[in-house]
């Protein structure tokens, strides 16, 4: 565990908490893509199956359980409890166009052709693009609430911090995983445009509004 990894995990955790609290406090999930949330649930489910057969540390186990629970909790809030506030007309991204290529790629490019390994690889590929429905929703409505922007910023920072963690681990521990690194870079790049808007607008107290 290094500082980048810890900050990355905390940023990820904070993103998930921000989202849950936002939905709970405002009693609304307007502006949030349920499609992205479904993709994240698929990501965590397929990646954390190793909860069953591998124990790494109490930290690792607890975080995995929290991510899974928060992810399914968010889906429950969006699709059941506050369904009436869900922006279904704008959340039109076709997630099969992300799931299918991620699955095919995981079958072709992986570390070992074993069920758990392929599912882990699939989760890494899918996570890298899972935010696209959310970014698509923001671009369709042309704006995002500040709290949604903070959520997106924390979620984007998480994988960016992981990249620093991987650089550190390469030098300090001779450890690297090309699949995770390449997918992590793709994931972070997808947020770049948003990062720019966040820093130039939201941090200066303005609403995140896209040019018409």
């Amino acid at each position: 565990m290094n500082i980048f990894r810890l900050l990355g995990d905390l940023s990820h955790l904070l993103a998930i908490i921000i989202l849950l609290v936002k939905i709970w406090k405002t009693r609304s999930c307007a502006g949030i893509s349920g499609k992205s949330q479904i993709l994240f649930a698929v990501v965590y489910t397929s990646r954390y199956l190793d909860l069953i057969n591998a124990f790494i540390s109490p930290y690792n186990t607890i975080m995995k359980i929290v991510f899974l629970a928060a992810s399914y909790g968010t889906i429950y809030l969006m699709y059941m409890k506050f369904k009436a506030t869900y922006d279904v007309n704008h959340d039109t991204f076709r997630i099969e166009f992300l799931i299918a290529p991620a699955a095919v790629l995981a079958l072709i490019v992986n570390h070992a052709f074993e069920p758990l390994e392929i599912l882990w690889t699939f989760s890494i590929y899918l996570e890298s693009v899972a935010i696209l429905p959310q970014l698509f929703l923001v671009s369709k409505t042309g704006e995002a609430e500040s709290i949604t922007s903070h959520y997106l910023f924390m979620l984007g920072s998480y994988r960016a911090l992981y990249i620093f963690n991987w650089i550190y681990r390469y030098y300090a521990e001779n450890h690297y995983d090309l699949i995770a690194i390449v997918a992590g870079i793709v994931q972070t790049v997808l947020y770049c445009d948003f990062f720019y808007l966040y820093i130039t607008k939201v941090l200066k107290g303005k609403k995140l509004q896209l040019p018409a």
Partner: peptide
Amino acid sequence: IVINEIKDEL
């Protein structure tokens, strides 16, 4: 170089 010996990341 150890490639992905243990998946200890989240």
